[in-house]
């Protein structure tokens, strides 16, 4: 059963004329799959490799270098990156991350049981003037406080905020 849909394959092929090598399409292809599936399973790696005329190990080698692409299971509907680098840390970013994880009932890197929200720490999001900040999907949340972070968790997750323990990450 193929993982890549016709639509994904077409989107990947659209990138071919941009680069003199097929291998250069690796990152765009991984992004295309990741945007649609919220992870890049091993089967997809094999199929991407076929499209790019590479060995699956070459695609896997690249994928595994970047922490961005998950491989075991999809991240939540919303992927929230809370910055922990220096400018945010100086303005209590780490406490906000902790508070937010507590509100969601998960640890950094985990997904709520209803698959609504994944919380991860991030290294500098490049929005230091709004520290502490968080990137949730495509939305930058500025000047976070414990309260606004908790409100975000409640809004993102179905029902009330503390919706139980993490999935099978342990």
């Amino acid at each position: 059963m193929a993982v890549l849909t016709e639509d994904m394959i077409a989107a990947i092929k659209d990138y071919f004329p941009r680069y003199p090598t097929r291998q250069a399409v690796t990152l765009p292809a991984l992004h295309i799959v990741n945007e649609r599936l919220r992870y890049v399973p091993l089967e997809a790696v094999v199929e991407i490799a076929q499209l790019l005329e590479l060995a699956p190990a070459q695609v896997q080698d690249t994928l595994s270098f970047y922490g961005y692409f998950k491989q075991d299971k999809p991240h939540g509907e919303t992927r929230a990156w809370v910055c922990r680098s220096i400018a945010c840390a100086l303005r209590d970013g780490e406490q906000v991350l902790e508070h937010m994880c507590h509100a969601a009932g998960i640890h950094p890197g985990e997904t709520t049981r209803d698959n609504k929200l994944t919380i991860e720490f991030a290294e500098c999001l490049g929005a230091c003037e709004y520290a502490p900040c968080m990137l949730a999907g495509d939305v930058l949340h500025k000047n976070l406080t414990n309260e606004s972070a908790e409100a975000f968790v409640k809004q993102t997750c179905s029902g009330h905020g503390g919706n139980g323990q993490a999935g099978s990450t342990h």
């Binding site: 680098s85 220096i86 400018a87 290294e123 500098c124 490049g126 929005a127 230091c128 003037e129």
Partner: peptide
């Protein structure tokens, strides 16, 4: 790929 902590002018 502006990733240096504290930097955001390119953004």
């Amino acid at each position: 790929d502006e990733s240096e902590p504290g930097t955001f002018n390119n953004r």
